[in-house]
């Protein structure tokens, strides 16, 4: 427990620290520009110093040969890259990823009333209140979802923690009941089992 507290404290400091902002910018510059330029320089040096002499290319032709190789490589890479984004590995990696076919944490949190959009909760609350349909159970469940949503936004912005209370079984049933869906006990148990799993907890 103390270890977790210490870890949270350190992480909180790191998150607030400007040093990490700076490191993020430096890393971005390095990954996206510097390392790429270094790779190109390495290629040119290896071509000029090792590959072209080994192929017995005359010294006066070596800069042109290295330049042409670089240009050809870049041209092939542009074509491959375009295909990659639109039809290749990058696109396939997205659609073959597990969560392309499964709801994410946030989708499940909204499905189960753990969090929901505050404007919708507010409008529904007013509607039910005006229609005399805001029973104590609906009021409690809507309020719980609204508070959880605010808490989620609050700790998501100002804290390191990310534990959000699970919806109560009563509220889970109530939200589905409001949508005209009766949940069986088995369904409730299965929902809770999944909600407690590492991906949805």
């Amino acid at each position: 427990m103390r270890g977790k507290k210490l870890l949270h404290g350190l992480a909180k400091r790191a998150y607030r620290s400007k040093a990490f902002d700076l490191l993020t910018y430096i890393r971005s510059a390095h990954m996206n520009y510097v390392s790429f330029i270094l790779t190109l320089i390495n290629l040119a040096v290896i071509m000029m110093g090792i590959v072209l002499p080994a192929l017995r290319v005359p010294p006066e032709l070596r800069p042109a040969a290295a330049g042409a190789t670089l240009a050809a490589l870049l041209a092939v890479a542009v074509v491959l890259g375009w295909i990659d984004v639109n039809a290749g590995v990058t696109r396939k990696t997205v659609v073959k990823q597990a969560y392309w076919r499964r709801p994410t944490w946030q989708h499940v949190a909204m499905l189960t009333g753990r969090i929901y959009k505050l404007p919708d909760l507010t409008a529904l609350w007013i509607r039910l209140r005006k229609g005399g349909e805001l029973d104590s159970e609906a009021a409690e469940c809507l309020s719980e979802a609204a508070k959880n949503t605010v808490y989620w936004a609050y700790i998501g912005n100002f804290d390191i923690k990310k534990e959000i209370k699970l919806p109560s079984k009563r509220c889970l049933k109530k939200f589905f009941e409001m949508a005209g869906v009766e949940l069986s006990e088995e369904e409730v148990a299965r929902v809770y089992e999944l909600l407690k799993s590492p991906e949805y907890s």
Partner: peptide, 11 residues
């Protein structure tokens, strides 16, 4: 971006 993807993912 296309160049980099082409290089890193294939070449």
């Amino acid at each position: 971006v296309y160049v980099r993807l082409g290089i890193s993912n294939y070449l």
